[in-house]
């Protein structure tokens, strides 16, 4: 589904990604862990097409197509979804308005009929229960005045409605208490399917107790320096990231 080969990217003059190789197959859940400033969020943004990141080398193939050649909205319509670490607040437009417009843009691209207000409402009501979100939040301005947990639930709700093929969760656990984390993980788990792949980016092992990945990769200094099964997360939890840093230093 997704093939990342020798991907290099800059922010300004600074090289952040320094040769990433990653293969994600349909139905797989990959966790990407790593210390702060290792390039985790940069990878998420490069995959979703953020403008202020320059790709300087390598390739990303998504469902046989050149992902890096696509505009952000085309990536979204082709089934890529990024759950933001810091969802944006947009006063003046409700989640309902915004999400209906987004869904219809996606459906149009996929050759499906656009939904009218009634059909959309029925769909969204169904998805609300996934993240235990109240309907009143839908009519409030998008993310404005939402708590951290509400914002993250809203991200997962959007994911459920847009029905992506590849979901990228960027530090979805940051700033959440344990109850909110459980609810969000429950929503994410309900969305796991053989047709949908996920990349879960996190600093802490805690999230992976609830969203159990098939593979774990450790990103450090812009490269994936270690890959393994879910047991790797436990090892990281126990030993921290320093032993990885020493290993990398020794290898150089």
């Amino acid at each position: 589904m997704l093939d990342i080969k020798s991907l290099r990217a800059n922010v300004g003059d600074k090289e952040i990604l320094r040769g990433i190789d990653l293969h994600v197959g349909a139905g797989e859940v990959h966790a990407i862990m790593g210390p702060n400033a290792s390039g985790k969020s940069t990878l998420a943004h490069v995959l979703s097409g953020r403008e202020n990141y320059q790709v300087t080398g390598g390739s990303v193939t998504y469902q046989g197509k050149d992902l890096l050649a696509m505009a952000p909205e085309i990536r979204a319509r082709e089934g890529i979804f990024l759950a933001f670490q810091y969802p944006i607040e947009i006063p003046g437009v409700s989640t309902t308005y915004f999400l209906k417009a987004a869904l219809n843009a996606v459906r149009k691209h996929r050759g499906q009929d656009e939904l009218d207000a009634m059909e959309f409402l029925a769909l969204i009501k169904d998805k609300l229960s996934l993240v235990q979100m109240s309907q009143t939040l839908l009519n409030r301005p998008l993310n404005e005045g939402f708590s951290g947990g509400e914002k993250k639930r809203n991200e997962i709700l959007q994911m459920a409605v847009l029905d992506p093929t590849l979901a990228i969760l960027d530090e979805t656990d940051s700033g959440l208490d344990i109850d909110a984390l459980r609810i969000i993980a429950g929503g994410v788990n309900a969305l796991r399917s053989p047709n949908r792949a996920m990349i879960v980016i996190t600093h802490y092992q805690r999230l992976l107790d609830y969203i159990v990945p098939d593979f774990i990769h450790v990103l450090y200094n812009g490269r994936i320096v270690k890959s393994g099964s879910k047991d790797l997360a436990l090892e990281l939890e126990r030993k921290g990231y320093d032993w990885i840093k020493s290993e990398v230093a020794a290898a150089q």
Binding site: S48, R50, E51, A71, E73, L82, F84, L99, A101, A102
Partner: peptide, 12 residues
């Protein structure tokens, strides 16, 4: 905000 909306499928 523009990027957020584009990442959901709306064009620029």
């Amino acid at each position: 905000a523009i990027f957020y909306l584009r990442s959901r499928g709306l064009d620029a």
